[in-house]
């Protein structure tokens, strides 16, 4: 049985990617199972999806804690650290990244693969620069790098089950398959900055009632930002629209009345840029 875990952000299509993989595996004659785990159901929030592929009926109804393959739809999620948790020592790590796979952090033994699924998606008009829909491009890369499913079955699954732009999504899958790069595994002692160890949770200590003392004033709520707003003060008319519309109260006005973005709270939703009458706000990709 092959166990594949997807890590993405709400809106990127990680759940659909896992389901499409299951559909493709079924067309290949396999018995698939796929399901997502949602924390908060919100655009931009981390999402995990699980896909099992076997020759016979899957007899496990649990999340995947020892994946053969980890697929990361947004490289920022690698920084969070938990994406590689439990990845098998001879497993595969596939990341949507412009970087060469050899530059990816990974535990020893893991085959590293990367593909610039964002550029492929945008080339085919899938999603927006703010939120590219990268799932079909990365599935093509997964098919080529792992053989988990055939590219033919994947294209067929896309044709049948992707309601919008099936031709563009098929092309993205083909491009992803052609563009994926694989680096040889690192040897023990040379692995960098990544561990597949399963974190041991500390002993459980609960308060008297299910109450969390929490306020976004004291908690950095911007962990999932992929784009940041940059304000051109020369064009800013101090109309305060960005301050009014920011859903996270992450914009304050300084003494002169110019907006200042608190990046520890800004989730990069882009509403300020969309609302700004003189177009003084640009959304810039995070490094």
């Amino acid at each position: 049985m092959l166990e594949i875990r997807f890590h993405g952000r709400g809106g990127q299509g990680a759940v659909v990617a896992s389901e499409l993989l299951a559909q493709a595996a079924f067309l290949d004659g396999k018995r698939p199972q796929s399901f997502p785990f949602f924390g908060v159901e919100r655009r931009g929030a981390p999402v995990t999806a699980y896909c099992r592929i076997d020759d016979r009926e899957v007899r496990l109804r649990t999340s995947i804690t020892r994946p053969d393959i980890v697929v990361v739809l947004e490289p920022g999620l690698l920084r969070a650290g938990s994406a590689m948790e439990g990845l098998k020592p001879d497993g595969i790590l596939l990341v949507n990244s412009r970087e060469e796979p050899a530059a990816l952090p990974a535990p020893a033994g893991v085959r590293r693969a990367s593909v610039d699924a964002t550029t492929i998606a945008l080339t085919h008009g899938l999603g927006t620069p703010m939120m590219p829909i990268v799932n079909t491009a990365i599935l093509g890369a997964l098919a080529a790098a792992s053989g988990a499913v055939s590219l033919g079955a994947l294209e067929q699954a896309i044709d049948r089950f992707v309601p919008a732009h099936p031709a563009e999504n098929r092309a993205a899958a083909r491009d992803g398959a052609a563009a994926v790069r694989v680096a040889p595994p690192l040897t023990a002692g040379h692995s960098r900055g990544a561990s597949s160890a399963v974190a041991r949770a500390p002993p459980l200590e609960l308060p008297d009632a299910p109450m969390a003392v929490a306020s976004s004033a004291t908690i950095a709520t911007a962990a999932w930002r992929t784009l940041r707003p940059e304000i051109d003060q020369r064009r800013c008319t101090r109309c305060n629209f960005c301050w009014k519309f920011c859903p996270d109260v992450a914009i304050e006005l300084n003494a002169e009345g110019f907006p200042v973005v608190h990046l520890e709270h800004c989730k990069g939703c882009g509403i300020c840029a969309a609302e700004c009458p003189p177009g003084a706000i640009a959304m810039v990709a995070e490094g």
Partner: peptide
């Protein structure tokens, strides 16, 4: 049906 383990699980 169990939340997610069936509700959102796809299988044949």
């Amino acid at each position: 049906e169990d939340a997610f383990y069936l509700s959102h699980t796809v299988e044949p």
